[in-house]
Nucleic acid binder design. Structure first.
Length: 333
DNA sequence: ACCTGTCAAGTCTGG
DNA sequence: CCAGACTTGACAGGT
């Protein structure tokens, strides 16, 4: 089994390369001149895209093919103050340049809109904003010229005192999305409400691939072992790829999981600086026989710094070896 | 250069 | 019905 490692948004290795610089609504208003303030937002957006490209070059140099873009690329993109503003059209060239690099090097990229995007919500306003946010994220991927292999990952959302009913509402609201958006989504189990087994059921009903978060599963589960759910999770990925040979250099779109380690015993949900190799290696061994390629997204405070350390720690185990700077393979035992 | 409070957005809990 | 916690990187304003 080949395991490819990736990281999220920012680097702790490359300095001054934030892809998430922002502007507050208060300072937008304070500037007074609306047109000037909008130009400033666009400059920040262009800089964030430029830094994202710098990070992709860094990734390329270190064999990292898996990367999640920052959801804060364009500040205040869906804020009501900026109604009528179309930053994606304005930054068309910048987005196209970023996407061209992704395609040239056959990288796998994604977005993860933050927790304000909630399709299980009973509130009309929240749903409307969630639709808008998802549409904008997909529009950015379109502007990059990336096909359906570039996904948008979200959670099911809140339970509002009735988990089953909220799940049904999620399914209904999901159906209200445009097909072009739906076909880019993945669903991830969360650390408080919907477990991996429950998320998997939604994925099977909606025919959406599932991203298994092993850390979330550890703190929120119904007693199932992740390897027991794995064959079904893997099946949700079977139809998810598009033209993968040309765009990713792979025969299919590999399943993806998230990994992080608890910060400490007291707050088991918080993310630690680095990722412990042991528990991940244990899971990998259990699924290795039936999983030729797995993509693992690292969610640790030290970002790519944690990636390199994890790769070294994994490669030091007797049944694992390095495949390159950012991937490992499990030797058959 | 460094420190601290604040920030667009949502949900949950407790009062 | 409302305040505060949750959580993250970065701003804003201070020293």
């Amino acid at each position: 089994m080949i395991v490819r490692l990736g990281y999220v948004a920012m680097s702790t290795v490359v300095s001054n390369a934030s892809p998430s610089k922002t502007m507050t609504a208060a300072s937008f208003i304070k500037l007074g001149d609306r047109e000037a303030a909008i130009r400033k937002l666009e400059r920040i957006g262009a800089e964030n895209i430029h830094n994202s490209l710098r990070l992709l070059r860094h990734n390329r140099a270190h064999d990292i093919r898996l990367y999640r873009f920052s959801s804060k690329l364009i500040p205040l993109m869906t804020h009501e103050l900026l109604d009528g503003w179309d930053p994606i059209a304005v930054l068309k060239e910048e987005f196209a340049g970023l996407g061209a690099y992704v395609r040239e090097h056959k990288m796998r990229t994604s977005f993860h809109p933050d927790h304000f995007t909630v399709l299980s919500t009973p509130r009309e306003e929240v749903l409307k904003n969630s639709y808008k946010d998802l549409e904008r994220h997909c529009a950015m991927l379109e502007a990059m010229g990336l096909n359906k292999n570039a996904k948008c990952n979200i959670h099911i959302g809140g339970s509002y005192g009735d988990k089953e009913q909220s799940m049904e509402r999620f399914i209904r609201n999901f159906g209200g999305l445009d097909e072009t958006v739906r076909s880019r989504l993945t669903l991830e189990n969360d650390d408080k409400t919907y477990t991996a087994a429950e998320t998997l059921e939604a994925c099977e009903r909606l025919q959406v691939p599932m991203v298994l978060d092993l850390h979330h599963h550890m703190v929120n589960h119904g007693g199932e072992k992740p390897e027991e759910l794995w064959p079904r999770i893997q099946r949700t990925w079977e139809e998810a790829g598009e033209d993968t040979e040309a765009s990713l250099g792979m025969p299919y779109l590999p399943p993806k999981i998230h990994i992080s380690s608890p910060k400490n015993g007291r707050d088991a949900r918080a993310h630690a600086d680095y990722v412990e190799a042991g528990p991940l290696a244990e899971f990998l061994r259990r699924i290795a026989a039936d999983t030729p390629v797995l993509d693992v997204m690292i969610e640790a405070k030290m970002k790519d710094g944690a990636l390199f350390r994890l790769k070294e720690d994994l490669a030091a185990l007797p049944d694992i070896e390095a495949a390159d700077q950012a991937a490992i393979k499990l030797k058959p035992v």
